[in-house]
């Protein structure tokens, strides 16, 4: 289970300092929590679902602020497919975050505003 691209983590590493970024483990744990609720099963396209990026804010207890969720980045896919992909991503963020994500409180300023990109392409290898 490699939830977060290791490459991203590697490139981030040189500038990672204790207080201005999450550790690789913290990022992976956060990603894994969301991934567990990201269900592509309800999508007719399955793994061909478009890539979407969702931006949102979290409260200090790690709960996503429901009305802060918004779609920010999409490709050239059809509006309907993007809408469904966004809804699946939205459900994942809200459902798994209902009781608060396990994030380090002392780094709240880092994860207070988060952008998650949902890319299902690796799922198609199954």
């Amino acid at each position: 289970m490699r939830m977060v691209s290791l490459l991203t983590a590697f490139l981030m590493a040189p500038v990672a300092q204790a207080q201005n970024t999450l550790s690789v483990e913290e990022r992976e744990a956060f990603g894994a929590e969301v991934a567990g609720c990201w269900n592509l099963g309800g999508l007719a396209e399955g793994a061909k679902t478009p890539v979407v990026t969702v931006a949102f804010s979290l409260s200090r207890d790690g709960v996503p602020v429901a009305d802060s969720l918004r779609l920010i980045g999409t490709g050239k896919d059809t509006a309907e497919a993007v809408k469904s992909a966004y809804q699946a991503a939205r459900r994942a963020i809200l459902r798994c975050g209902a009781k608060g994500y396990k994030l380090p409180l002392e780094k709240y300023e880092i994860w207070r505003n988060t952008e998650l990109t949902f890319n299902p392409e690796r799922m198609s290898l199954r």
């Binding site: 990603g31 567990g36 269900n39 952008e115």
Partner: peptide, 22 residues
């Protein structure tokens, strides 16, 4: 991270694994 001094950039993570279930 290198340039933004004042404003904290949002945390960006790629989720590339999910579940497939009804």
């Amino acid at each position: 991270t290198l340039t933004a001094v004042q404003a904290q950039e949002p945390l960006r993570i790629i989720i590339d694994e999910g579940v497939i279930e009804p």
